[in-house]
Nucleic acid binder design. Structure first.
Length: 273
DNA sequence: CAAAGAACCTGGCGGC
DNA sequence: TGCCGCCAGGTTCTTT
């Protein structure tokens, strides 16, 4: 599912729809999604609270409530947040939670049950957020800062490093492949072998690929849909991800697929050095 | 210390 | 058509 651009899309829509509203009721048809809190406590503490705002940090969805409580949702691979209108949600076998507001609400769906739902107070929230690296699209994430971060991780391979959430928050398998294609750097390169030019291209690729993907409302190839059930359009802009065997848009050589860090990894062996 | 592999779960797809 | 193995936008733990 959802990497930074997809979560950003969902969060923007969710915030527009529920900010300032009161959560009337919560249903938990399959409450194993709850972490560190039981069903009764979750319902008791959440029902009647007002949503102050919804925002994103890395791949996390944070719903700030009155009473210093925050709901934190991680969609993992197949999680979805889907809006419904009216008084009753459509419950499916993959519905894990339902949040009812006045005449509308949303469900948390998750086919594979990897996703999680937490309720945290400020200390717990701080503990979770402090494990995340910088937000790649923030102005404070700059070129020099990125170079320094890389120098401290020089023995690692670049793709797994880009996907490490404590290094940078929000990049997953799709965008790591796309960023490295843009940067013309092979995914298994050790960081200490990167030239200054290559580091610069990776930095530019992160900013460009992620912001264009946010603009396109994310990538859908299978499960992901946004709050309104719409697919993401970045799928049509992918250069290498899921294009194994298809010609590289730059040189025509078939796109290669290998396994790296346990993940399918796509690249052009001629354009990426 | 870093990388690989397995585990968590379910369904879709290609191959035979 | 049917079964089997492999694969999937993530994370975390164990093994090498």
């Amino acid at each position: 599912m959802p990497e930074l651009p997809e979560v950003e899309t969902i969060v923007n829509q969710l915030n527009a729809k529920i900010k300032g509203k009161v959560i009337d009721r919560v249903e938990l048809p399959s409450f194993e999604v709850l972490r560190d809190v039981n069903k009764d406590v979750f319902q008791t503490l959440v029902e009647g609270k007002k949503v102050l705002r919804v925002y994103r940090r890395g791949k996390l969805i944070l719903i700030e409530l009155s009473g210093s409580l925050t709901i934190i949702i991680h969609l993992k691979l197949t999680g979805r947040i889907i809006e419904f209108k009216g008084k009753q949600a459509k419950i499916s076998p993959s519905t894990r939670a339902v949040f009812y507001f006045d005449k509308m609400g949303f469900t948390f769906e998750d086919l594979r049950k990897f996703g999680s739902l937490r309720l945290v107070e400020p200390p717990g929230k701080k503990a979770i957020l402090s494990k995340l690296g910088p937000e790649p699209l923030e102005g404070s994430f700059g070129r020099e800062m990125f170079f320094n971060m890389l120098r401290r991780q020089s023995r690692k391979k670049i793709k797994p490093l880009l996907m490490d959430q404590s290094f940078i928050a929000g990049i997953g398998n799709i965008y790591a492949d796309e960023v490295l294609y843009f940067a013309r750097v092979q995914p298994d390169r050790f960081v200490f072998t990167l030239t200054e030019e290559e580091m610069e291209r990776i930095f530019n690729g992160i900013k460009k690929v992620l912001s264009e993907a946010v603009e396109a409302k994310g990538t859908t190839f299978r499960d992901y849909v946004d709050f309104s059930g719409e697919r993401g359009n970045y799928f049509y802009k992918l250069k290498v991800y899921r294009r194994e065997g298809a010609p590289c848009y730059s040189c025509g050589l078939p796109v290669k697929k290998i396994r790296l860090g346990g993940r399918g990894t796509h690249f052009c062996s001629r354009c990426q050095k």
